[in-house]
Design a binder for these strands. Structure first.
Lengths: 348, 348
DNA sequence: CTTGACAATGCTACCGGTGGCATTTAGTAT
DNA sequence: ATACTAAATGCCACCGGTAGCATTGTCAAG
């Protein structure tokens, strides 16, 4: 069996290519870097030789000379492995197309030394840029530090911002609004929401999108039907239990994410409340669990992979500096309602 | 606000350290690489300066000169994001301690060009070594190719092998055997198993461990109570449905993994079969879902993080070449039974 | 026919380390 | 004291690229 590449045979370098093409290495370098000041003819000649010998410039040498690494970093904290996995695959897709590699870096976003930690990470491997996932992406101090140190980055966030060069956005507000409309269409009137931590932008977006739409449709949420959770499963259980054991029970609970929605489901089960018969439950994210849980959750699906690709492309555009267009392109993504089995018409 | 590191201020290099310590850069290099041929006194002096100036050698320069990259690659395919996330965190833990970075590389393990793909990956970034996750870790052709190309690697697998220098192992057989004993202790007699694809080593280990122990305890499984699944959720639903609609129903189903066990649970729900009342269900892996599903699954927990650390340490040992001890150390991990709500005594 | 301007290409000094070999220093046997 | 050897350290070429500047070539304007 043969492979295209044989690491045993001495690696060909830019010098070899230069010699074979009968030009100087400087010219080969120009071709590699798509410099405009190369004769069309020479360019073709060199490119042909490069292709013929399957030459790939050495990233380390390139990096050493140009202080670049062709390495992108992914900063995340989130315990939601499914989300991260999806992101990674999306980023890697476009990374490998464009000659970059992805280095992953989990961290605790609310630790005091987040900044130092991340900066060290960048510095250790001379990373060319960073993609930052929520909730770390919401830490402005981090972004500011990166700005100060001239480290290119792209943040994935919920909500809208004008700084399109630094964000890939998800219109969670609109999606939450859709959820509100859907719930109203089911004739429910006693509606509760378990929000995420309201210091998170994503939580606020969803919360506001939902409650505002609800109000505008004539069903403003009662104060005691709005509770703030932690986005954790356990929090869903606890708050679900609380909502479902009060005298005045809601007939539908919208949770800020699927984790908590699953928790609510668990609480309902414990309390012997039928879903969706006596209670409808909705989540947000459409993570894997959402469809595995019984009954499967009605939720909102974000095009996570797409966001990842947007982010990678934008970041690479920033790193490479050409194509200013791509840098400022508005990358906003629109999550969609997914109706499954955890919701139903109001029963009396 | 100040950070330890300021990327704006010119980076200090080995030359600076050499000058400050009053020695040649070669000596500093020796200190960095822990060469034994440095005087104790000079060594301390240099180390002190290094610490004082927070000097970190440039990976690219180092790599260029020594043809190393301080980058480790993680090869995986598996759709189980939770598993991958856990592995990543484990690997990264030890990586960062030892000065390495992790580059991730998802791929389709049964594609024809797996070998070329992986080799390209290694070559592109001059990776120092590879950690290979199942099922890609079971592809011998891949390992062989890596051997031929002198790429260090460690494979994570289920089962045992003597080549302790190339594997981190999980004793799934023993764990499956424990599961068998547990089930027998619950007085069940009609026992079914949904295996994984039997061309996977892990599936065979679990299958054999379970059925052999069952037989030795006097409850050999009937042929029609052994069915082969794909490890996917859907497969669990389908096979669960099949087993539970036959005339002769099992009172317990052991699935090769939690994904399929969840599928079985779903099937039971559809068929209005109570779990664990009428049917007990067990899984394997203890992935996140196992505890979220209702009822929570009795399953087997692998110390995944630990395996990841073992793998990273072994790989680094191979890469660095010193410490032959660590290279051949037997890294076998023992998964444990986790009893939750999906199993119960046989009812009549 | 010169000269200038611009395009195309080459020369070469780095980038920040490593490693082979030379050199210096110190310790030991004779 | 002298020669010899091992330990400690320095010198310098090199890893494979990039980039500033020099050089060569071409064509049009003067």
């Amino acid at each position: 069996m043969r492979y295209n590449i044989d690491m045993n045979q001495p690696k060909i370098t830019i010098n070899d290519i230069a010699r074979l093409a009968g030009v100087s290495k400087r010219t080969v370098s120009r071709v590699i870097n798509q410099s405009p000041k190369v004769g069309e003819l020479t360019k073709q000649k060199v490119e042909q030789i490069i292709a013929e010998y399957n030459y790939v410039p050495d990233k380390q040498a390139r990096g050493l000379a140009s202080s670049r690494s062709y390495l992108l970093g992914l900063i995340y904290d989130q315990p939601d492995a499914l989300y991260i996995d999806e992101i990674q695959r999306g980023v890697i897709d476009t990374c490998s197309q464009r000659g970059y590699e992805l280095v992953v870096h989990p961290c605790k976003y609310k630790s005091d030394d987040l900044n130092t930690n991340v900066l060290n990470f960048v510095r250790r491997s001379k990373l060319d840029g960073l993609i930052i996932l929520p909730p770390a992406s919401e830490v402005d101090a981090l972004a500011q530090m990166l700005d100060e140190n001239i480290v290119p980055y792209v943040r994935l966030v919920s909500g809208h911002t004008e700084a399109t060069d630094k964000f890939v956005m998800s219109n969670d507000r609109h999606a939450a609004s859709d959820m509100a409309k859907f719930i109203v269409s089911l004739k429910h009137e006693k509606i509760a929401m378990i929000t995420g931590p309201l210091n998170y932008r994503s939580s606020r977006e969803r919360y506001e999108g939902f409650t505002e739409t609800m109000a505008s449709l004539g069903y403003p949420l009662e104060a005691n039907f709005i509770v703030e959770g932690s986005n954790q499963y356990e929090s869903g259980i606890e708050l679900g239990r609380k909502l479902l054991t009060s005298d005045d029970k809601p007939s539908v609970i919208f949770a800020n994410n699927d984790e908590m929605a699953s928790g609510v489901l668990k609480a309902a089960f414990e309390l012997d409340i039928k879903v969706p018969g006596q209670l409808s439950i909705c989540g947000f994210d459409d993570n894997l669990m959402a469809s595995r849980v019984i009954p499967a959750l009605t939720t909102i699906k974000r095009p996570v992979r797409q966001m990842a690709k947007y982010a990678a492309n934008k970041l690479i555009a920033k790193v490479e500096g050409n194509n200013p267009q791509a840098i400022i392109q508005n990358c906003t993504v629109h999550p969609e309602l997914v109706i499954r089995d955890s919701t139903g018409f109001k029963q009396d």
